[in-house]
């Protein structure tokens, strides 16, 4: 099911028997149950499942935003907390979460200045990143002057600016309209093909998962368990034409089938 030892690149992420529950008034609510999988460096993995199945919680635990309760998670052979301290992981959330009092440029530079990068390097990297997402002309614009799609591109540039080894995306395009979403999915693939960061991408859109990922992990309804771990058999680079191809449709249908087994 996983690449195992034979893989040339070491496992970037490993999850062993991870379980998670939230305390509620009526006892503990189990959110994730015994999750185990590995992600190779440079792999693009989509996590898909019904709402409330714990995929977001898994992402937040991986990024060190939630404490690990049971099991073991390693990020580049570090605990999530260590990986966070070493700035190995980076988030993109459903909303862009830009600071409204900073320009696009200042928002992208924020993690760099927090990490103490020297000014010259910071400026250069910020410029490169804005160019990468096609917003160099909007460097001085404030978030409220940008469209939702542009804001999310700034968030993406910011997330990649400090060159994390793992990118955690939590339904980053779900708040956008269809056209912007398709465009940004394509952009994400283009950017990712340049730097090949390891990606965990949480989504509940089947088509999005198939279009973007190398591999799809299907989760059951709460408590989330791994139902399937499938490789996406589509060549790269992938373009929007692919969305109309038969093989794309077949893989979408396959994932739908897994998900229907859930309900």
């Amino acid at each position: 099911m996983t690449d195992g030892d034979a893989s040339p690149s070491p496992a970037s992420l490993s999850f062993e028997h991870v379980s998670l529950s939230y305390p509620t008034g009526a006892g503990n609510l189990a959110v994730l149950k015994d999750i185990s999988f590995q992600v190779a460096a440079g792999e693009f993995v989509a996590l898909i499942g019904p709402n409330g199945c714990g995929k977001t919680s898994l992402l937040r635990t991986t990024g060190g935003l939630l404490p690990l309760q049971q099991g073991n998670i390693r990020v580049d052979d570090m605990t999530p907390a260590q990986a966070r301290q070493h700035r190995r992981i980076s988030f993109v959330f459903q909303k862009p979460v830009l600071l409204p009092w900073y320009t696009a440029q200042q928002n992208v530079a924020l993690p760099l200045s927090l990490a103490g990068w020297p000014r010259a390097q910071r400026r250069q990297m910020t410029q490169t990143m804005l160019q990468l997402v096609g917003l160099e002309a909007f460097a001085q614009a404030y978030p409220h002057q940008l469209s939702g799609g542009m804001q999310q591109r700034v968030a993406l540039a910011r997330a990649l600016s400090f060159q994390p080894s793992v990118l955690l995306l939590d339904e980053p395009f779900s708040a956008l309209d269809d056209m912007t979403r398709e465009h940004l999915q394509h952009e994400l693939l283009r950017i990712w093909s340049n730097n090949r960061t390891t990606v965990l991408f949480v989504t509940h859109a089947v088509g999005e998962a198939v279009f973007l990922a190398d591999r799809i992990l299907v989760f059951s309804a709460r408590p989330g368990q791994l139902l399937a771990d499938t490789l996406v058999q589509l060549p790269r680079p992938r373009t929007l034409d692919l969305l109309e191809s038969d093989s794309f449709m077949q893989q979408v249908a396959q994932i739908r089938h897994y998900l229907r087994g859930v309900a």
Binding site: G64, L65, R84, R87, S90, L114
Partner: peptide, 8 residues
């Protein structure tokens, strides 16, 4: 959350 992920 965002700022925490940057180890601020």
């Amino acid at each position: 959350d965002l700022l925490q992920s940057y180890a601020i």
